[in-house]
């Protein structure tokens, strides 16, 4: 019986009168890779930012394992250690080397010794294939390499779940593959992942479930096979068809 890691109930987020999403329910089980798709401006990124408490939802609850992280007395900094976040624009610490980026949380949050932090950070860099770039600064790395450092930085904290906010959208096409490959490997290793992306090839191949969001609602969710081949709603079919045309033509032909 799979254990839910993340449980979202009745979540609502508004900015003033503007409702971003409303009464949202979502459960993520241990080891699952969930891909969220949908047109831009439908609250996918805001949902991720609510989950790691970078913004506060207006209503509803989120549980991480058995802890309600939306509770008032919950220590945000404590929660965020357990939720890895990968940003669209990488958001690396530009004044630190790749190693320094990965080490910072280990030394300052986990209070590890310098030696232990270095060892752990090097291990995470090796995991994303960048051990040989440890002493490079972000400005000396390609976009794809920067994003892999971003992934290593989040992984270093040993999170329960990893959130990816359009991790490849800011990358040149030829750099997307290396990032997706790292994510694919993570999923295979059993990491629990919640991914917002337009990469349909990735969604189809790696996702356990695909969630289609539009205008602040979850329209439909299901396995890749259900979503791609037998969607219940015409809107889902239409969106998938359109986005596949744009992004992932090659991969879908083979399935």
């Amino acid at each position: 019986m799979p254990e839910p890691i993340l449980t979202i109930k009745n979540l609502t987020k508004k900015y003033g009168e503007n409702v971003i999403f409303q009464h949202l329910d979502l459960t993520v089980n241990e080891g699952d890779t969930i891909v969220i798709i949908g047109p831009s401006g439908t609250g996918k990124s805001t949902l991720l930012r609510c989950i790691n408490l970078l913004t506060r939802p207006d209503e509803g609850q989120i549980w991480l394992d058995d802890m309600e992280i939306t509770a008032k007395d919950c220590d945000e900094d404590q929660v965020r250690q357990h939720i890895g976040m990968v940003f669209q624009n990488f958001l690396l610490f530009n004044h630190l080397t790749a190693l320094g980026n990965v080490k910072l949380g280990l030394s300052k949050v986990k209070k590890m010794s310098d030696e232990a932090a270095t060892e752990k950070a090097m291990h995470e860099l090796a995991r994303v294939g960048l051990a040989d770039r440890a002493d490079h600064y972000p400005g000396q790395l390609s976009g794809g390499q920067q994003q892999r450092v971003g992934i290593a930085r989040a992984l270093a904290m040993d999170p329960r779940i990893m959130l990816f906010d359009e991790p490849t959208s800011a990358l040149d096409p030829e750099l997307i593959g290396e990032v997706l490959e790292v994510m694919r490997q993570l999923a295979l290793d059993g990491m629990t992942m919640l991914v917002v992306t337009h990469e349909m090839g990735f969604a189809r191949e790696v996702a356990d479930r695909i969630v289609f969001m539009e205008k602040g609602y979850i329209v439909e969710e299901g396995s890749p096979d259900e979503m791609f081949n037998h969607p219940k709603f015409p809107r889902t079919r239409e969106f998938l068809w359109k986005i596949t045309e744009l992004y992932g033509k090659k991969e879908t032909d083979t399935n």
């Binding site: 970078l54 900094d77 940003f87 690396l92 610490f93 910072l104 300052k108 949050v109 989040a154």
Partner: peptide, 20 residues
């Protein structure tokens, strides 16, 4: 943006200010 990045790995607000 850098504040978000710092907070996302569990640094507190003032840790992010001083280290990032």
């Amino acid at each position: 943006a850098q504040m978000q990045a710092g907070r996302s790995i569990g640094l507190s607000k003032w840790q992010t200010i001083f280290y990032v």
